[in-house]
Design a protein around this nucleic acid. Sequence first.
DNA 1: TCGATGATAATGTATAGACATTATTGCGAC
DNA 2: GTCGCAATAATGTCTATACATTATCATCGA
Lengths: 233, 233
Amino acid sequence: MTSLHARIVGEIEADILSGALAAGARLPVEQELMLRYDCSRMTVSKALGELARRGLIDRRKRAGTFVQRPRVHSVVLDIPDLAQEVAARGQAYAYRLVERRIRPPRDAAERALAGAGALLQIDGVHLADGLPLAAEQRLVSLASVPEAADETFDHVAPGGWLLHHVPWTEAETRIAAAGAEGAVAAQLRVAAGTACLVIERTTWRGDAGVTFVRQHFLGAHYDLVARFGPGAR
Amino acid sequence: MTSLHARIVGEIEADILSGALAAGARLPVEQELMLRYDCSRMTVSKALGELARRGLIDRRKRAGTFVQRPRVHSVVLDIPDLAQEVAARGQAYAYRLVERRIRPPRDAAERALAGAGALLQIDGVHLADGLPLAAEQRLVSLASVPEAADETFDHVAPGGWLLHHVPWTEAETRIAAAGAEGAVAAQLRVAAGTACLVIERTTWRGDAGVTFVRQHFLGAHYDLVARFGPGAR
DNA sequence: TCGATGATAATGTATAGACATTATTGCGAC
DNA sequence: GTCGCAATAATGTCTATACATTATCATCGA
């Protein structure tokens, strides 16, 4: 016996996550939701208030209620749009493609990501002021993001591109440290064994895998900062 | 002109964070808050509902409303209680003290942490199944946590101890990678330059600094995993 | 003594209505 | 046209009330 406002939250959330309500779309006004769920305005408002506090929607007086664009998740780690971060540091950002190809999944983990389709593999290097900052190896599920096949990713980083082409995602991030080896060391132009911050992230949209990325950051040039607290949102 | 329920949220939150309402303490019942704020029950309930959603309080029917114990913050990175984590992996956990001393702050950052008082410096090593997992250098502000001066930290790790002795905290975490050098390499029993995950965390209680800790994790033996998503709590 | 049972005190959900606030929109004056 | 202002449509807050739910507590009976 779940409560009515919880049901409203759930249904709207599902519509947003599935893409049925696209980012920027306008939700029905409260009056209409009152009719749809046959309930009072307080109940609708409670549900919308919760979604707003969670950051899924934006309520604006007189204008209405809108689906939020996917924020950079959770303030914390997720999906640093490197272009923006580097720019914020006052450095010149560039992305250099190393390799791009379409291939079938090679192991169980990749099959789970790919679903029924093939994978787009994109290797590249992020540069700050011309110097290597991070080496990136990425797999994109073409079943989930077929448009990616039409994009060359010559100079546009796939991370930022995906941010703008896939609406809501859920992500699991793994952070570790490792020495740079082989191709990665070469791309970063450092000696083998140099300490790197390794970030691996798998991203889903609902149950479908979207992308997996492994980034080697030069430890000396990059770090992550996250702030927590009961007050923090 | 902040709204009334926002004010209620703020005041109760402040009482919790300051320790005026200790963990486990019972809050006034809604009727009493209605009187205190001269408002309706819905307004009180909205405020308490928000605090409950944020995890600061726990509302139980018939029993009342209670201050939650500080959860491991924010699901994500924070404050891995290594003892628990290692145990969860089925390994034997141990902590070995390397050095413990009380000293004045040495630079501006340390002065900011220490406030008016001195610092307790605790260096130690976390072991899993007898092997070094992480080297830890910690500073505790005795102004904020005077009880720490009476604790030897011989075999009890200061992280877990602090978790149980300081109620609510806010933390900033920095994550980077670096090669182990000097004393750290020796404590971890690895060659200099071995890649480590470096976690630095400063913790406050309100405006007062509580502790700063720098941990070097052996990259090969440790990683952080965090999962995000709109649904995730 | 101990266990079942029912009363009760607390939160949980919902309603209907009132008034406040605010950004948009459209209209009128210039 | 465009600038400003007023009407208005949407959300924001709050009240007073009702009934539901549930864990606790006290009482009663075996």
